[in-house]
Amino acid sequence: MKKTTITLLLAALAMPLFAARPITIKGSDTMVIMNAKLAEAFMSRNPSSTIQVTGGGSGVGIAALINGTTDIAAASRPIRTSEIDKLKARFASTGFAYPIARDGLSVYLNERNPVRELSLQQLQEIYTGRITNWNGVGGNDATIILYSRENSSGTYQYFKDNVLRGKDYAPRTQTLQGTAAVVNAVSKDPNGIGYGGAAYAKGIRFAAVKKDAKSPGIVPSLETVRSGDYPITRFLFLYTRTRPSGAMKSFIDWALGAEGQKIVSQVGYFPVK
């Protein structure tokens, strides 16, 4: 009896060692809902797989990929050369990128704001602090209140690289944790402006964005993002250290397949295929 008890006890203690190790996805807050829904659907079809999804920002996810604490990094921006250098040095790998969805980076305005469209040039001047009053872009005589994401966010970096063209945000820009917080702030502030993924945009209006002063304003939609007419589109990525195999490969293949891409559309992003 004593032997049986000890054997059972040892077996119970050893169980976690033999259990399938969960796949971890860490990174972009923009992607966290989409990734959670993808993981949930995949696990319901593959009960032996476990996928854990956490946010923290694209930078945090890629840092975790570099230090070996996550299997997959979710990022709403391309990985940087300096990050690839760290992957090369630590793991002798240049990383593997999987664009899993397209996103139209939307510009949010309060519903009471009379401004309907903005050019990329105007957006750059607004966010770098050269235009500080709405009357500078055809709106009311009111100070523009800038809302942005925190600097660990891939959305922050993408907007900086592609809309501000590398210039710095105006010092008075208020940074908020998560796109939902930006949407919430703009929805309560008639003079506010923010940006973020289309998936979160509820209760506020999207500004039509013009490539230049002469171009027509385009609102982000499936058609305009897919066709590339909307000027601020980006891919959302999953990054791995090594070429995926086993359950990780099955998950990524499935997410890029018809079922996965259907979920991508359901949460408000645009399929890559």
Binding site: K88, A89, F91, A92, S93, T94, T242, R243
Partner: peptide, 9 residues
């Protein structure tokens, strides 16, 4: 150089 051999630098 990140060689074609997985994990070999």
């Amino acid at each position: 150089w990140v060689t074609p051999v997985p994990g070999l630098g």
